[in-house]
Design a protein around this nucleic acid. Structure first.
Length: 766
RNA sequence: UGCCCUAUAGCUCAAUUGGCAGAGCGCCUGACUCUGGAUCAGGAGGUUCCAGGUUCGAAUCCUGGUAGGGCAACCA
């Protein structure tokens, strides 16, 4: 990706980039290696584009590399056609993987060996239950599963069976290889997941070499490990797979090994992403193919005329987060227009022609005017000659027999400017028997020739083409494929196909100005006032075809009454009233714990809610009791409940904190020897290392600074370094106090006495 | 009803890891007057899901709750 797109990001790094940067800085990895792992069973779409941009983008930004790996472990759905589509579309998006193209099927032999290693370690076994038995014994989300009767087979028997599975001795479904993990795990995926199944099927790459195929949960983590992937970035639905990912890789590899991180997949308004549903659109002839310009596939978007740069920009704009989201389609359209604005030369075309005769212009006279291909804001040169003559076409929309208010285009007796031509007046309207307008007869003002010195101004300017020089062209006006923002959200019994927009394609024949004479597929133009158009792949010189990529931003449409109001977006209701609740914030306790809680309150005077939390956790309770023997009970409770809990939640490591160390920190803080901030930092460290706090304080010089002269000097320095902000503070922006506090704290490494700093700052800032 | 994840402007996301709540899109207003839709400038818009707590200071930490999403394929 072009490095300068980084500057488009409003903030700093997204959470994935932060993780990568952290690992690079800490030296955990020396070079970032990501991967984009599609299954070749469908055409890549805009949702893939997000994953592609993230994986290739991060590897590019951090000077690593990104592998293109086909996760082809299911022979029944995969095909070379899809591999080629993927390769072509990733390149089209602008990314290059060089020599790092792989297939999971390349690793079948290694994966097989890995499986044998697991068997030998007693971590996998051959299960001979039927698939229904396996399913039934897995249990439910609330009930534990049951161990397979084959779970305790000997290593030798497992090895033998597995070898014979590989030799093709058994029919499909006779056996599977499963990991031996935990049938009672609350995470269903850890209930002895299936690693290999027997499938006598021809694989598009390995042919009939293998009668057994690994499953995603086995093949994916190990493929990552084999390739030395450092950061395995995938979408949120794989979050629950991560423990299994870690279990497998830990069982077979040492650090540094790959780690999986998940981000939210893309949902786009008026679009579906499901590969199965896209396939139904194609097979049901609802669209012309995978590359139908209405499809969200990259091939469809390419044919629609959307430049890859716009898609990358869009992916940049939507960001990377962990919350499910649905992106407004107008953001994509914005990215497209923003890109096409400086790339598509302007020309004029009339899509719904209405004849105009300039009655005071000689029949044979053609006058040529220079017209710029670019508007003022695009710093490009280039003009083309535009002919003006007696016979013209304008768009039917630009004329109204009875103009509504604010209609500044042509109407009987009214004037309008023909862009790069003259101001004309509509003198006469010719209608047919049924009252349809078939021709306008107009006169022109010769003083108003384009580029001339006339200062006459009329309200409207419209596009037009001269009839005798115009090219007749076919124009396909594409609109969103679905009528509803979330087409997949359908009531029971109906189908996403019911939401198809019947007007998603309107084909017209129109006239294009003379200067465009070369119709090379992929060439893009802006038809002035109408939108961006691209020459279709199937276009020929005899029958030129244009696809509308996107309309121009349309504020007029909103003014016109008959435009349907955009469906309001369904949003999970955030009814605050339902969230108001009166109950105290306390955990539910067993009767014994309730008793303990009551005693705590009675004995130590601890807040009842706090007592409840202490009573619910034995370790916390013990720590509190021991600490409360030496320091004031309420203080001890606060430290245990807030700070110790924080450290415990944040750390995956065992907390080794003992009461004496905690007491020591509390006393240091209470006596004023260290700031409370330092105390908290110290606790975080001591809780994991078991070191002596007071020794650390002396060793590192962490004693609180409460020398007012010293602090005053620092305060003065900070204030003078930030004179502008000090001014703003005095001007009433008191929120800046936090900024100044933070600055002083930074200068002192968090050692300053905050109350003292605050009062000094208040003095200094007046 | 178990486990996991998420919640900041209408939408998508930031917030230097506890220190000024911001950006883009959308919306409104204005400018330009040969693109009425482009472009440019300005503006409005906040209970940071709720309640309580810790802290000099909380979007950020603690406790509880609410809402949304994911997970029970020999798919990926």
């Amino acid at each position: 990706m072009a490095p300068d797109t980084e500057s488009d990001r409003s903030g700093g790094l997204n959470f994935l980039e932060q993780i990568v940067e952290r690992d690079l800085k800490s030296g955990t990895v020396s070079q970032v290696v990501t991967r984009f792992p599609p299954e070749p069973n469908g055409y890549p779409h805009i949702g893939h584009a997000k994953a592609i941009c993230i994986n290739f983008g991060i590897s590019h930004d951090f000077e690593g590399r990104c592998h293109l790996r086909f996760d082809d472990t299911n022979p029944e759905t995969e095909d070379m056609e899809y591999v080629h589509a993927m390769e072509r579309d990733v390149r089209w998006l602008g990314f290059e993987w060089g020599e790092y193209q792989f297939h999971a099927s390349d690793y079948f032999e290694q994966l097989y060996e890995h499986a044998r290693t697991l068997i030998r370690a007693g971590k996998a076994y051959v299960d001979s239950q039927t698939d229904t038995e396996i399913r039934e014994n897995r249990g439910t989300v609330t009930e534990a599963g049951r161990n397979s009767p084959f779970r305790e087979r000997s290593v030798e028997e497992n090895l033998d069976l597995f070898r014979r599975m590989r030799e093709g001795e058994f029919p499909d479904g006779a056996h599977v290889l499963r990991g031996k993990i935990d049938m009672a795990s609350p995470n269903m995926l850890l209930r002895d997941p299936v690693f290999y199944r027997i499938k006598h099927a021809e694989h598009y790459r390995t042919g009939n070499d293998w009668p057994i195929y690994p499953l995603y949960d086995f093949a994916h983590p190990l493929s990552d490990a084999i390739e030395g992937i450092t950061h395995s970035l995938c979408s949120l639905e794989f979050e629950v797979h991560r423990p299994l990912y870690d279990w497998l890789v830990d069982a077979l590899y040492n650090e540094p090994r790959p780690h999986q991180y998940e981000f939210a997949r893309l949902n786009l308004d008026y679009t579906i992403m499901s590969k199965r549903k896209l396939l139904r659109l194609v097979q049901g002839d609802h669209v012309s193919g995978w590359d139908d310009p209405r499809m969200p596939t990259l091939s469809g978007m390419r044919r629609r005329g959307i430049p890859p740069e716009a898609i990358r920009r869009f992916c940049d704009l939507i960001g990377v987060a962990k919350a499910d989201n649905r992106v407004d389609i107008s953001l994509l359209e914005y990215a497209i227009r923003d890109e096409l604005n400086h790339r598509a030369p302007r020309v004029m075309a009339v899509l719904d022609p209405l004849k105009v005769t300039i009655t005071d212009w000689p029949e044979d006279k053609i006058e040529w005017n220079d017209a710029s291909h670019w508007p003022h804001d695009v710093p490009k040169e280039g003009t083309r000659p535009v002919p003006f003559g007696r016979h013209l076409y304008i768009d039917r929309d630009d004329f109204a027999l009875e103009p509504p208010p604010k209609f500044h285009r042509l109407a009987p007796g009214r004037e309008v400017r023909l862009r790069y031509g003259y101001v004309i007046r509509c003198d006469e309207v010719i209608t047919d028997e049924s009252g349809n307008v078939v021709e306008l007869r107009c006169s022109h003002d010769p003083e108003t020739r384009s580029g001339g010195s006339s200062t006459r101004r009329v309200k409207g300017t419209i596009h037009w083409v001269e009839a005798s020089h115009a090219h007749e062209v076919e124009v396909r006006l594409y609109d969103r494929l679905f009528k509803t923002p979330d087409p997949e959200d359908v009531p029971e019994g109906s189908d996403f196909l019911d939401n198809l927009n019947p007007e998603s394609l309107v084909v017209t024949r129109g006239f294009l100005e003379h200067a465009v004479s070369d119709f090379t597929p992929g060439d893009r133009f802006q038809f002035e006032r109408q939108g961006y158009f691209v020459v279709d792949d199937g276009s020929t010189a005899e029958n030129p075809v244009f696809n509308r990529t996107v309309t121009l931003r349309d504020t007029w449409a909103k003014l016109s009454a008959d435009t349907p109001v955009k469906a309001s977006k369904p949003k999970p209701s955030r009814d605050r009233s339902s969230q108001v609740q009166a109950g105290p914030p306390r955990p539910t306790l067993s009767p014994e714990q309730e008793k303990v809680a009551e005693e705590l309150t009675a004995e130590f005077g601890v807040d009842p809610n706090d007592s409840a939390v202490l009573a619910s956790d034995e370790w916390l309770l013990g720590l509190f009791r021991d600490a409360a023997a030496d320091v004031e009970a309420s203080t001890a409770a606060n430290w245990v409940l807030h700070e110790v809990q924080r450290v415990r939640n944040a750390s995956r490591k065992e907390v080794v904190l003992q009461a004496p160390a905690l007491v020591s920190i509390i006393e240091l803080v209470d006596s004023g020897a260290i700031s409370s901030r330092t105390g908290k930092e110290l606790l975080g460290e001591v809780a994991l290392s078991g070191a002596d706090p007071s020794a650390l304080v002396e060793e590192r010089g962490l004693r609180q600074i409460d020398d007012s002269d010293q602090l005053a000097a620092i305060v003065q320095q900070v204030v003078s370094e930030n004179a502008g902000k000090a001014e703003a503070y005095r001007g009433g922006k008191t929120g800046l106090m936090g900024f100044f506090m933070g600055q002083v704290m930074r200068h002192t490494g968090g050692k300053a006495n905050p109350e003292m700093v605050r009062s000094l700052l208040e003095d200094a800032l007046g």
